[in-house]
Amino acid sequence: MSQRYEIRFSGAGGQGLILAGVIMAEAASIYDGKQAVQSQSYGPEARGGASKSEVIISDTLIDYPKATVVDALLALTQEAADKYSHDLKEGGVLLIDSDLVKKVPAGKFKTVAFPIINTAKNEVGREIVANIVALGAMVALTEVVTKEGAEKAVLARVPEAFVELNKKAFQMGYEKAIAARA
């Protein structure tokens, strides 16, 4: 991998994007033995408002903890897609929820779209795991952490009763992203 790989999870406050970023960073840092820094930016609102969680992954020491040129971006709302896609790099990857982001940002990057929240709600069975569906998709699209490492990181964060639900959400996101990319 290159020196620095930058991922941004964006959407609305309350969608669990900060947690998705934390799990991605834990996968890299704890399970894959790489360097990782996770940071976030959010407004004073408890719910709503544009929210972003950034993860930098590298083989070497990470100095600047925020994104400079984003390699991969997830946008779960139109507002986030509009606000946070400006520094997505040429050749990078943009993952959007096809139900919620109707106006796809223009740029020289690859866009992958599928109904992320709807998948969580109707196929996995709980809307609350939309962030894990999105995480599974980002793991598939970025290939910057191992699938095994990411799964371990997800399960380490989840209470026993919700292990199967989250496993299913992760796997479904992973598969749907690969199908949507093709």
Partner: peptide, 9 residues
């Protein structure tokens, strides 16, 4: 705030 809220190993 950045150092206080960011996560690292």
């Amino acid at each position: 705030e950045i150092v206080a809220h960011m996560r690292e190993r």
